[in-house]
Amino acid sequence: MTPHEQFVAFMTILRKEIKRYTRIWTQTLLPSAITMSLYFVIFGSLIGSRIGDMGGFTYMQFVVPGLIMMAIVTNSYSNVVSSFFGSKFNHSVEELLVSPTPNYVILMGYVLGGVSRGLLVAIIVTIVSLFFTQLHIHNIFVVVAIVLMTSTLFALAGFINAVYANSFDDISIVPTFVLTPLIYLGGVFYSMNLLPAFWAAVSKLNPLVYVVNAFRYGVLGVSDVSLPFAFGMITLFTVAAFAFSMHLLNSGKRLRQ
């Protein structure tokens, strides 16, 4: 395929993905807005007002970046895992596999679909958060970079989950038993400085720690981890996830007989 033909194929996949999640917006976009509103009300306003400051900010200000990032992570992940597994389940993935579309274009199409949903939900959640607190962006470049990198990383993770999944149960196991604990233990609701030394060290293995703290730095200007280190770790995880996804596509594992 020529580069232009590849671009056409990429845009076709991306357009199809965007059309899919906007068509079912009550299942894909609305729940995050409602869930985050509840988080803002309960953790931010009701409980947060009794907690006091954290990291030099009100508790509401402290949790908002983490909650926005939580929405980005879950949406970029779940978009790709449900869409790609769905196409595997109904065999419509064969439409792509029999076509000359290169594997990296297929991967990028699905991943960018997940990234776009992550970004859209991030905008919605940010707008919702403005009803509860004021947001002053400390460094817009860090914010944009970390949002794009994070949504890419978790869209790739969703793709890997979809390739390995054999049933719809399998696409909910990882979000429920892996992703959710990692998010909650990733410093969304607390500063890492509150943890004992051992658990703070263990937390360094959690990619969500870097994601949440780097984003919090972009918004508030404070972080529990070094920013270059956080970017380095996210880049490392993303490159590894991309390489593994390409390996799965090139080998045809669980996609071709």
Binding site: M1, T2, H4, E5, Q6, V8, A9, M11, T12, I13, K16, K19, G86, S87, N90, H91, S92, E94, E95, L96, V98, S99, P100, T101
Partner: peptide, 29 residues
């Protein structure tokens, strides 16, 4: 290729299925 089993997304519109397939072969919109 016309396979034995139906292998398209049952929720997609008929025209979208055919137009998308053309896109996978690089045909402009």
């Amino acid at each position: 290729i016309v396979p034995q089993e139906f292998n398209f997304n049952q929720f997609e519109k008929v025209r979208d299925i055919v137009v998308n397939q053309a896109g996978y072969y690089g045909l402009p919109a």
